[in-house]
Amino acid sequence: MILDAHGDYTIDGVSVRSLPKVSLHDHLDGALRPATVIELADEAGIDLPETDAASLADWFAERSDSGSLVEYLKTFDITTSVMQTAEGLRRVAREFVEDLAADGVVYGEVRWAPEQHLAGGLTLDEAVEAVQAGIEDGEDSIDADGGSIRVGQLITAMRHTDRSLEIAELAVRHRDGGAVGFDIAGPEDGFPPSRHRAAFDYLATQFFPVTVHAGEAAGLDSIRSALIDGRALRLGHGVRLASDLDVVSRSGDEVLVTFGDLSRWVRDREITLELSPSSNLQTGAIEAWGEELADHPFDLLYQLGFSVTVNVDNRLQSGTSLTKELALLARAFDYDLEDLQAFQLNAAAGAFLTVEEREELIELIAEGFDL
């Protein structure tokens, strides 16, 4: 693997950035450009810890690399503060789409919590409409440049508040206006999905897709609740599911593992794991296995047949891109292009699209990799 002067990575002579990618776990308030944060903060009269883009990017990276999800989440106080107007939300969403396209993403899902963007007087519906307008601006811009990208909204409720049913109803109201799924996010430990059972019950009656943050800062009970109470089709991170696997022996590339009931269910039902390698290191999600990327149970889960996908989580906080995450994994676990394609096919299969749309996406990925 070779890193070039433009920040791209080459594997077997192929640019990783040029490969078609699917992004399933990408937070809008974790993807702002530092320069945009500065400009929007200046317009709103908000003080920042740094006033030039490079220094602000370094500040976010330093504060995010704490080993604690709670501390990691505090950096979002700044990004959400500059996303309180329709104009700000529209701009951030447009730039989000443009940045995904520059990263080689052909289909993405952006998750964000409308309830955190009402301080400027917007209603929940107006906030969703502003983000959708920005998404469409970005899609049109990429189309005009000869590219193609599609992005859907994952409307998210904060798990430590009591608005999840209201947000679920909001998501369903906008299912024909860009909303493709529902999520809960925020501090995981102490706020299980079961607290939001009414919202999940409602979504089930509406046949509306659900992904749930689980198995990041909390363990197997959180994952179990996401599946039982949340009827989750995907697990946001889900990395701690690996603690339900008992590695009996290793011999070279051969690993003998005993599955727990939960991990076997997730594997056999092909429930998508939205893994985010760099973020998982920053938040301490893999502390049970080690402190380096090579310690991440990603490869174990992959080799055992779990539906693993690669995601950025928060581009700003982790200083990353999907291209970089794939390259880091390739270096850590000696993956080749066939492996990288497998991750994209898993993501396409887990996307909140119709069967026909997923099949088209799978064909697009196969053509782009052309292995």
Rank of each mutant, 00 (worst) to 15 (best):
3 L>P: 03
4 D>F: 10
5 A>F: 10
9 Y>K: 09
18 S>C: 07
18 S>N: 07
25 H>T: 03
26 D>E: 15
26 D>G: 03
31 A>I: 05
33 R>V: 12
38 I>S: 01
39 E>W: 06
41 A>L: 10
50 E>Q: 15
57 A>Q: 14
58 D>E: 14
58 D>R: 14
60 F>P: 01
64 S>A: 15
66 S>C: 14
69 L>I: 08
74 K>M: 11
74 K>G: 05
75 T>R: 08
75 T>F: 04
80 T>P: 00
86 A>T: 08
86 A>I: 06
86 A>M: 08
88 G>K: 05
92 V>I: 14
97 V>H: 02
99 D>H: 05
104 G>Q: 09
107 Y>D: 03
113 A>Y: 08
114 P>E: 00
114 P>I: 00
115 E>L: 04
134 G>P: 10
140 D>F: 04
142 I>N: 00
143 D>F: 13
145 D>L: 15
148 S>H: 13
151 V>S: 03
152 G>W: 08
152 G>S: 11
153 Q>I: 04
154 L>G: 03
156 T>R: 08
157 A>C: 10
160 H>I: 12
161 T>F: 13
165 L>H: 01
166 E>C: 02
170 L>R: 07
171 A>I: 10
171 A>G: 07
172 V>Y: 01
176 D>M: 00
179 A>L: 01
180 V>F: 05
180 V>A: 06
182 F>S: 09
184 I>H: 10
185 A>K: 06
188 E>H: 12
192 P>V: 05
194 S>H: 07
195 R>P: 12
198 A>K: 14
200 F>T: 02
202 Y>A: 01
209 P>C: 00
210 V>S: 06
211 T>V: 15
217 A>T: 09
224 R>L: 09
225 S>E: 15
234 R>G: 03
235 L>N: 05
236 G>N: 11
241 L>Y: 00
246 D>G: 02
248 V>F: 12
248 V>W: 12
249 S>L: 08
253 D>T: 12
255 V>M: 00
255 V>A: 00
260 G>E: 01
263 S>L: 11
263 S>D: 03
269 R>A: 10
271 I>G: 00
279 S>G: 06
281 L>S: 03
282 Q>K: 15
283 T>A: 12
284 G>Y: 03
293 L>A: 11
297 P>N: 06
298 F>N: 08
299 D>L: 12
299 D>A: 15
301 L>Q: 11
304 L>G: 00
309 T>L: 04
313 D>W: 10
317 Q>W: 07
322 L>F: 09
325 E>M: 11
325 E>Q: 13
327 A>F: 02
327 A>M: 04
328 L>K: 11
328 L>Q: 12
343 F>G: 06
345 L>T: 04
346 N>S: 07
347 A>N: 01
354 T>R: 14
356 E>S: 11
357 E>F: 02
359 E>P: 00
360 E>R: 15
361 L>I: 08
362 I>K: 14
362 I>Q: 14
364 L>Q: 12
365 I>H: 08
368 G>T: 08
370 D>F: 02
